[in-house]
């Protein structure tokens, strides 16, 4: 049993990890074909996770309702919405054509899901305004430079920036300065962070492949 719990996952991780890395450098079918098959299997595994997720939501929230735990009425709304959409999708929307225009499922998607998603995303505009007022303080020279750059980009990227400086020579117009800031200094900083993050990904991946980092496995303490 210890082999299946302790050793097999580590070996599987190592072999599949090394094979996937090698397939980037070695196009030969002996390496590339198994790697491609594994990638296809990964698609299947990721897709099957949704089934597991639905079952989990039912189990966890069903228990909360049954035992009248805190906020249990909200769980009824959640379960009713989930089961309702599943019934509409499976049985009331033309079978496999449930995504076609005019079906009940599409109606629910367009009139319930889409507005709610857009509403949540729209909250960002308000939150940005309140965060800008509350937290953006010029306490240091760095913060001051950041503030100046932010103001230039904010105004330069919208038509009002063009309108305000339209009579100035082109090198002095706000949109030109905004474009320059976006294309050069911020680009350089982002590249630096991205390179560092990329190395972090490689290091973490290597640790997982080598079995040095295996917290994801259940440690059998007995």
């Amino acid at each position: 049993m210890s082999f299946f719990k302790q050793h097999l996952p580590v070996w599987l991780t190592a072999i599949i990890g090394v094979l996937t890395i090698l397939s980037f450098f070695m196009p030969h079918p002996l390496i590339a074909d198994p790697a491609e098959t594994l990638q296809n299997w990964a698609i299947v595994i990721v897709a099957s996770g949704y089934v597991l997720g639905a079952a989990n939501v039912l189990k966890v929230n069903g228990e909360d309702v049954a035992r009248r735990r805190t906020n249990w009425p909200y769980k009824i709304v959640l379960l009713a919405s989930m089961i309702g959409m599943m019934i509409i999708g499976f049985f009331m929307s033309g079978g496999t054509h449930f995504l076609d225009a005019g079906t009940k499922f599409t109606w629910a998607y367009n009139n319930l899901y889409v507005p709610m998603q857009a509403t949540m995303f729209a909250l960002l505009a308000f939150f940005i305004a309140s965060a800008a007022f509350r937290a953006f303080r010029i306490r240091t020279i760095d913060a001051g430079l950041l503030a100046i750059a932010a103001l230039i980009v904010m105004i330069g990227r919208v038509p009002i920036g063009q309108w305000l400086t339209k009579d100035l020579p082109e090198p002095w117009q706000l949109p030109v300065w905004a474009s320059w800031l976006l294309e050069w200094p911020q680009n350089a900083a982002k590249r630096g962070i991205a390179i560092g993050a990329g190395l972090g990904v490689m290091a973490t991946g290597l640790r997982i492949i080598l079995g040095i980092e295996r917290n994801y496995m259940r440690e059998d303490k007995s």
């Binding site: 932010a150 904010m154 105004i155």
Partner: peptide, 8 residues
């Protein structure tokens, strides 16, 4: 954008 600039 102008309003957020004003707030800052």
């Amino acid at each position: 954008h102008v309003f957020i600039m004003f707030l800052i």
